[in-house]
Structures are given as structure tokens and as C-alpha cells.
Nucleic acid binder design. Structure first.
Length: 594
RNA sequence: GGACCUGUGGUGCAGCCUGGAGUGCACGCCGGCCUGUCAAGCCGGAGGUCGCGGGUUCAAAUCCCGUCAGGUCCGCCA
């Protein structure tokens, strides 16, 4: 349960031992343990068992009656460690061979009955857990997750420092940059009507550190984005933020790989192999996504050539691709129909299913439109065995691949907690991801991302084909973070801004101080940011980042424990020079912090 | 901004489809019994604005509308 190593956990103060640490070798010792009463079992007036819990585990204390003991009372128990009778050993407890006898019990703090069970076996609605988060934090789950998180932080810092990185803090009160995520505004009291914003990331600050000569910077940084929340997104989140000068993409990937592998090993004992790299195009072709889950196969197969010349009209498309589902050849028609509907819901024109057979090659509603020769080519290309199911989608390349990529996940993705940890790097993202309503190109990463050197001359002629020097880190199907080599040359930056439809005046007003700084000698540089909440969630086997955050917010942005957000007093508003236009909704009374 | 799921003693659920007295289960809580339990056991008891508001009906936890809260997702997240 505990992730704290034995060497660093030295009992002090009121305790001379931790509950979960006692073993047969301790028998005979007189110890004092402190913690919360997990439960008690009473056997008449003069025998009772009290299980005392701290973060290291549980020790059974044999006490003379338990009339006054209640769950979650804070106790100090002094007693003698003794071996349990052989037939009374509890193999389910780390301390199950021993118990504490001749106990003296001191009540350090009384406790009302908790509003929900802290036992690992019971489930409690998350809203209740969040309202009483301070109790929820006592559970094995939260103790484990937050201690694991601390170990991850520690390992990341170790790895970054070993690689010569310097930790530098950047401001939380930053300047608005109307671009990208919606920002949280902070009114200025001294300059009424003006606002700071909370940083969506330390992006510009860290690039300026490069200009400032701190050629290897890192920070475990809090970022804030006022965008709608999700299972993997909170308003505020934490990143391992990195920037380095005089290095290229290969070095950045190496720095980050070193850090995440060290952290993974520290908390799981699993040392991932060197992290494989694939380009964005390869990821799309093989997995139909830019964040592939490498824990399982079912890769996409290109059938475009295999079905060339087939009669079937739907296959006369720019791209025909398939996945093979092992052993799914016996699925009933209803389930196949549901797959077709799912594919259509995802945007495919349709989905062709084919059951691989031993005798007549492929069984499918459209088999009669496909010659046996073509059928055999499909079987060869997909390596489908009799009893397998082949799912085919045809259309434009990107949507076709993405539909199959999602079906692959629907049908094959293991649970989040399923090991191993399979990292991969995705490189060479497109520089632009499309065009906005006004016909301007939209930056895929951010406007300071360096184009791929081989593509830079297409900026003006064929911008959507320009690859960038940007890269994502992916773990088990989750995007863990992203980064890029930045533009440090004014001429390149000007060309990218132009492509994005950002005029010189725009650029000056939005990023003037960054561009100004770049006139005084900007080194070539690049960086990365790892989303720590997601990383820790995956390492903890949790599918929701709230489980690795001490005090998370609900989907509507509320803190159920404190009641935030709340209206300010009129006095506070006046001081800030703020008048609230529409009164706070009646929902303001939604919470009372117990 | 939108779609879907959920809301019933302190906790977790069943009941809702097919309306008929707040009916039930488990845990917890309170009291009693119990000297080797370990999610102890046995006996007894208390505890309810069926999220809230409106409608339909002789009658609503149940059907309808609205609303609030929690969740998952789309949009959004350079």
C-alpha cells in the first residue's frame, strides 16, 4: 500500500512504529502506534479487537473491551507486539502474523460516524466523496494515488536534474494572449479595468528563459484553462514543462524519454524499452489515430491495392482499409448491424463485414460483388484466419482510417489498468490542421512551431502539406504531452504568421514582447510538456484524473467541499472596480462544506 | 451550446417499464448479548421532502413537462 520507502519512514513524536510495519521479527517490542480506528470487533466485556489504520496499513490491537471505541477516532495505542496463535494468522494483512497486546489506548480525537464507508470494498458516489474529500483522502486508494504522484514528481525532478536542467518558476499572474484556450482573468486592484490572466501554460515565459540564457529549463508547472471539463481535463492541471537550447528534436525526445521512463520504473518496477517513434502519417495508417494504443494489435490493413478492379462500387474509393477481429466470425447479425451503425455514427459511409471461412473464402452480404480472386487477396492482406471477422471501410484516407481506428479501440482496447506501459513518440505532425471560417490556416500546435526543414518551401504553395517539427508523447492510447522545435528566426516566423493570417500589427500586439526579445539573440530551442495528471492516472491504473488530484472540481467547475466558486462581497467587488451584470444563479447555495 | 445516463433513510442498491398506504435488501448508526475475531456473529431499535417545481389522475417514487445536481461524451481544449 505504501509507496514510501522503509528507509525514509522513521517514526517520531507520539509514535514509535507505523501500523503496517510490524512483523513477526518485532515480537516482544513495546511500541506506540497512532492512527484512525478502522473497525472493532467486540467479544463481550473483556475482549475486543481494534484495527488501527495509518497510511502504511493496519494493525490488530487486542483491547480489554471496546465500549467507547468508534470508527475513525484518532487513537494512540501503546502495546506489546506478539505473535498471533498459529491458527489465527491473517494472511490478508501485511501485519497478519502479529498483533498488539496489553494495549493502552489514548483517545487523541473523537470522531462522528463517517458519512460513508472508507473501506476499499465499498463504493461511494463520487459527489459524496468530493464533498467529504478529507475523509476520502484517508482511503487506501487516495493514499496510494497521491503518494504515487509524489514519487512520480520526485523521479521526474531527479531525471531532469541529472540531465542538467534548472528548475525555474514562472508567474501565475500573466498577460492576456487572446489566442488558444480561454483564460481565467484576474482583475487588477491597482489598475482598475485591467486584468492579468492565469497562464494556460508557461509557453512564452519559458521561451524567454532561452533568450535569457537558461539553456535547460524545467518546471513542474500548474496551468489553467477555462474550457469545459472532462474525465481527463480539469481547469487547472500540472505539467512537467521543459525547454532547451542548442538542441534539436532528437535531444528533446531523449530528455523526456529519460524522465518518463525513470518515473515509470520508480512507481511500477516496470522499465519500459526505448520509446519507439512513428510519424503522424504512419500512426494514421497503422492505427487510425495520432495517439495509438500499442498494447494490442488489430492494426489497420491497406486494401486499396488488393481490391483494385473489384466490381463492388463502394470499394472504388481513394482508400480502402480493414481491421481483422480475431475469433469474431461467429458474432450474430445483430452485433454486426450495430457495428455498421457505429461506423456510420463515426462518419463512415458504411461498413462492410466479412466472415473468413475455411471453404468459401469470405461470407458477406456483398460477397457476390467481389470475385473469389479479390476475396483471396483480402484474406491474404488481412491475414484473416477462418473464424475471424474482417471489417472494411472505404472513402477518403483520413476519415476512413479514423473510423477504423475507433472501431479498433471499441473492439480491442484493454482496460486502462492493464499493463504494460507502452509509450510512443508521434512526430512530424502537420503544421496546420485546417482552415477556419475566415479561410485562414489554423496552427496545429502553436504559431511558434518550426516547420519541417524539407517542407518549408511549401509554406506559400501547399501549406496543408507542410509537416512541422512537433511531436506528441503517447502512452497506452492517451496523449501525454506535446512539444516542438520553436521558430527562432524572424524571417521564418514572418512567413508562418502570414500563412496564419496574422498581420505584423496583430503579431506585435499579441506577442510583441516575445518577438522583441527574439531580436536580441534567440538561440535555436525547443521543448515539451508532459501532462502529469494523465501520466499519474495511467501509472495508477485510474481512468479519471480526479482520482489522482487531491481536490478536483466537478464537471461544472464546482469544488463540492469548499463551495467554490462563490459570489464576492459587494465590498470586494467595489475594490476591484467590478460590477456583476447578471446576478449569481440560485445554484450558489448548492454546497455546504459539511 | 448539445446528446445520453443517474438522483429512493448516513452509504450502496431494488422498486419505476405495467400508477394503488414509503414496501424491500445489504452496510452503517443506537441499545443488548457474546473471550479469538479480522467486512466477526446473534437479538432488538431508530432513521425518508423518493433531488426540486409543475402537470395528468380518484390516486404519482412510478407517467408527462421544466429545473437543479453528479457523471460520460460532442462542441471547446493554439
Amino acid at each position: 500500500m505504501s509507496l514510501t520507502s522503509d528507509e525514509t519512514l522513521v517514526p517520531a513524536g507520539l509514535r514509535t512504529a507505523y501500523c503496517g510495519s510490524l512483523r513477526a521479527a518485532d515480537s516482544g517490542r513495546t511500541v506506540s502506534v497512532c492512527g484512525w480506528l478502522a473497525r472493532r470487533r467486540e467479544h463481550g466485556e473483556h475482549l475486543a479487537f481494534a484495527d488501527l489504520r495509518d497510511h502504511t496499513g493496519i494493525i490488530q490491537c487486542v483491547v480489554d473491551g471496546a465500549r467507547d471505541l468508534r470508527a475513525e477516532q484518532v487513537l494512540r495505542v501503546t502495546g506489546t507486539v506478539r505473535l498471533r496463535p498459529e491458527d489465527k494468522v491473517n494472511p490478508g494483512l501485511s501485519t497478519g502474523e502479529v498483533e498488539l497486546g496489553d494495549c493502552e489506548v489514548e483517545l487523541l480525537s473523537s470522531a462522528e460516524a463517517p458519512p460513508f464507508s472508507l473501506d476499499a470494498r465499498s463504493e461511494t458516489d463520487e459527489a459524496v466523496r468530493l464533498r467529504y474529500r478529507y475523509l476520502d483522502l484517508r482511503t487506501d486508494r487516495m493514499q496510494h494515488n497521491l503518494r504515487l504522484r509524489a514519487q512520480v514528481n520526485s523521479a521526474l525532478r531527479r531525471a531532469m536534474e541529472r540531465q542538467g536542467f534548472v528548475e525555474i518558476e514562472t508567474p501565475l499572474l500573466w498577460t492576456p494572449t487572446p489566442e488558444g484556450a480561454r483564460e481565467f482573468a484576474i482583475p487588477s486592484r491597482l489598475q482598475r479595468g485591467s486584468f492579468y490572466v492565469l497562464p494556460q501554460s508557461p509557453q512564452i515565459a519559458k521561451q524567454l528563459l532561452m533568450v535569457g540564457g537558461f539553456d535547460r529549463y524545467y518546471q513542474i508547472a500548474r496551468c489553467m484553462r477555462d474550457e469545459d471539463l472532462r474525465a481527463d481535463r480539469q481547469f487547472e492541471f500540472t505539467q512537467l514543462d521543459i525547454e532547451a537550447s542548442f538542441v534539436g528534436q532528437a535531444e528533446i525526445l531523449e530528455f523526456v524519454s529519460e524522465a518518463v521512463i525513470e518515473a515509470t520504473f520508480a512507481v511500477s518496477g516496470e522499465r519500459p524499452p526505448a520509446i519507439a517513434t512513428m510519424t503522424w502519417n504512419q500512426a494514421l495508417d497503422r492505427f487510425g489515430t495520432d495517439k495509438p494504443d500499442l498494447r494490442f494489435g488489430m492494426e489497420l490493413v491497406d486494401l486499396t491495392e488488393s481490391v483494385a478492379g473489384a466490381e463492388f462500387n463502394a470499394f472504388k474509393a481513394p482508400c480502402v482499409r480493414a481491421i481483422s477481429v480475431s475469433g469474431a466470425g461467429e458474432w450474430p447479425r445483430s452485433r454486426l448491424d450495430a457495428l455498421v451503425a457505429r461506423a456510420q455514427q463515426l462518419g463512415a459511409a458504411g461498413l462492410v463485414w466479412m466472415r473468413a471461412r475455411a471453404e468459401d473464402v469470405l461470407e458477406s452480404p456483398v460477397a457476390k460483388f467481389i470475385s473469389e480472386a479479390h476475396q483471396r487477396r483480402i484474406v491474404d492482406a488481412t491475414s484473416a484466419e477462418p473464424g475471424d471477422l474482417v471489417l472494411v471501410v472505404a472513402g477518403e484516407r483520413e476519415p476512413t482510417c479514423k473510423v477504423l481506428g475507433q472501431l479498433r479501440l471499441d473492439l480491442g482496447q484493454p482496460a486502462v489498468s492493464q499493463r504494460p506501459f507502452r509509450f510512443c513518440w508521434i512526430t512530424e505532425f502537420p503544421l496546420f490542421e485546417g482552415v477556419d471560417d475566415e479561410g485562414h490556416l489554423v496552427a496545429a500546435h502553436h504559431p511558434f512551431t518550426m516547420p519541417h526543414p524539407d517542407d518549408i518551401d511549401m509554406l506559400e504553395t501547399d501549406p496543408l502539406r507542410v509537416r512541422s517539427q512537433s511531436y506528441d508523447l503517447v502512452l497506452n492510447g492517451w496523449e501525454l504531452g506535446s512539444g516542438s522545435i520553436r521558430i527562432h528566426r524572424a524571417d521564418v516566423q514572418r512567413r508562418v504568421f502570414k500563412a496564419l493570417g496574422i498581420t505584423d500589427e496583430d503579431a506585435e500586439s499579441r506577442f510583441g514582447f516575445l518577438l522583441g526579445a527574439f531580436r536580441y539573440g534567440a538561440p535555436p530551442h525547443g521543448g515539451f510538456a508532459v501532462g502529469l495528471d494523465r501520466f499519474v492516472a495511467l501509472l495508477a491504473g485510474e481512468d479519471n484524473i480526479r482520482e489522482v488530484i487531491a481536490y478536483p472540481k466537478t464537471q461544472s467547475g464546482a469544488d463540492l467541499m469548499s463551495g467554490a466558486p462563490k459570489p464576492l462581497t459587494d465590498k470586494a467587488l467595489a475594490e476591484l472596480g467590478i460590477r456583476v451584470v447578471s446576478p449569481p444563479a440560485s445554484g450558489a447555495s448548492r454546497v455546504s462544506g459539511a
